[in-house]
Amino acid sequence: MKNIFQKSSSNWVKYDKYEWRTATNGKCYITPSADAKPSIYNPIKDYEKLVLTAINIGTNTMNRADEAELKESIINFVNEYGMLGLMTALPTTPDFITYEAVYLPKNHFIKEESISTEKYLSYFFPFDKIDFRKMGVEASWSMDSVEMIALIMTMKNKPQAVMMSFQKEYAEPYEWLVEVFRDWAFTFFSSFLYYQDYDRLDENERNLYRQGIAAFGGVAPTYRIELRERPTIVWDFNSLLLCVQMMFSFMLTDENSSMKVCKHCGKAFIATRPNMEFCSPQCKNQYNVYKSRAKKNDTPR
């Protein structure tokens, strides 16, 4: 499975600085800072770290970490990898700008099956309006940012909506991000526990795990081959969310998968040996210390 990504590439945009802001509707959003600078990077280059970081943020949400801790972990993730691109991940197509309305499959965030393009964009541009006009299937969008013009020229094959999500005005709701990270962690632990506890589960419990996993999925990305130093698969992800989900899916279903859960801290990690039970020497030492103390406390005096 590693060979798939070692011979692959992709690109995504991240800014060097993000911040939390509260909109007039009282909701909290993450958005690039006013003085932030964009850059393009390859999210596949260190895909294992990307996926594990996402899962472990979700683990914190499942463990009901406080809001300050979650916000810190999410902003650290976004500083390193950019925003998830929810705006283009949720609709049935990332080219929704070219349709009369935005069509949405069932999701956690928007109940309507179809809404106007303007209303949909308002979910992601809560602070400053962008110069966008929609008339039927026709749309016009303009900006005067030199940085954005350079990005558009560099990533001209991306759908217009994807490029719009790279604007500084773009924002993603905190509550939605928490839900996405939680779903990833739930999927991982459902798979892990299903096989770990298989013999102890009855058939109804097994079916619950199967149904939970079956709900996980996404739209397959397109790809092309470029002749670089060697033939390279270039994946055209229209959201970082889809990128994470695809790499996560490959890692989860790989017959040689080395993804495990630390016996002490409960975080996901990549085991370098088949018998590894801890994500770090520190966790192993702490586990043994706690285990030793527990034995002493249970010893009759």
Rank of each mutant, 00 (worst) to 15 (best):
Y103G: 06
P231V: 11
K134V: 14
Q6T: 14
L70N: 03
M276W: 12
Q160A: 15
S140E: 14
Y99W: 07
D131E: 12
Y209A: 10
S249N: 09
G217W: 09
P159D: 10
E277K: 12
Q6E: 15
F192M: 01
F237E: 10
L84A: 14
R64C: 03
A54K: 00
A65G: 08
K156H: 12
D202F: 05
L70A: 03
Y290C: 10
L242G: 15
K7I: 05
N25P: 07
G26T: 09
C262S: 07
W20A: 09
A101N: 10
V102Y: 00
E229R: 13
S33P: 07
M247D: 02
D144H: 12
E172F: 05
L151P: 08
T253L: 11
F250C: 08
N285T: 15
K129F: 02
V219W: 04
F248E: 07
S190W: 04
M276K: 12
S140P: 01
L242V: 13
F124T: 13
F216V: 14
T92M: 07
Y209K: 10
V13H: 03
F186Y: 12
G58K: 00
E203Y: 02
D183F: 06
K14V: 14
N42A: 05
T22L: 06
T232M: 13
K106R: 07
N288S: 11
C243A: 13
Y195P: 01
Y195S: 09
P300D: 02
T98C: 03
I233N: 08
A220F: 08
G85C: 12
L104F: 00
P32G: 06
K71H: 02
V180K: 04
K296R: 14
A89H: 09
V51I: 02
S8L: 01
T253M: 06
W176H: 10
F109Y: 11
P32E: 05
M1G: 10
G218Q: 11
I57E: 00
K295I: 15
D236E: 14
M163Y: 02
L252E: 06
T232N: 09
Y103C: 05
K291S: 13
L90P: 04
P300R: 04
F216M: 13
V102G: 01
D197H: 07
